[in-house]
Nucleic acid binder design. Structure first.
Length: 112
DNA sequence: CTTATGACTTTCA
DNA sequence: CTGAAAGCCATAA
């Protein structure tokens, strides 16, 4: 792990099943609250083989919406995986939303 | 070093 | 509430 790329991948791999994380949240975890774009960029250009071991589908935007522009992985595709993860996905106006209050990953923070 | 792109976020009207 | 614009970070060329 030297570049943000590997760091983001490692972080996403730590997301527990049935939970989701936002780009901004991961960015904050890495120490750069403004690097949310870099996070999305990393997942966008990462190798497909790596995508198999990295739950990138658990990473969504701040609104809990799937803004995937990837034609290879549409919101429907992602939503299907999330549903398989026992995560409730809400379909609204052509976009898929996830209840962050319920599925947002808290990280390793031992907050009370 | 400069320019361009991106699966983001926040703010203003 | 909806739409548009700017900001910020990292990487590629």
């Amino acid at each position: 792990m030297k570049n943000f790329y590997d760091r983001i991948i490692a972080r996403v791999k730590r997301i527990p099943e049935g939970k989701v994380a936002t780009y901004g949240q991961i960015a904050v975890m890495e120490g750069s609250p403004r690097s949310a774009r870099a996070v999305g960029w990393a997942l966008h250009q990462m190798n497909p083989a790596l995508a198999r071991q990295v739950p990138w589908w658990r990473v969504i935007n701040r609104e809990g919406r799937i803004s995937t522009t990837c034609q290879e992985h549409t919101g429907a595709e992602q939503a299907a995986i999330l549903k398989k993860e026992e995560i409730q996905v809400e379909y609204r106006d052509g976009n898929y939303y996830v209840d962050l209050k319920r599925y947002l990953w808290r990280g390793d923070f031992s907050s009370s």
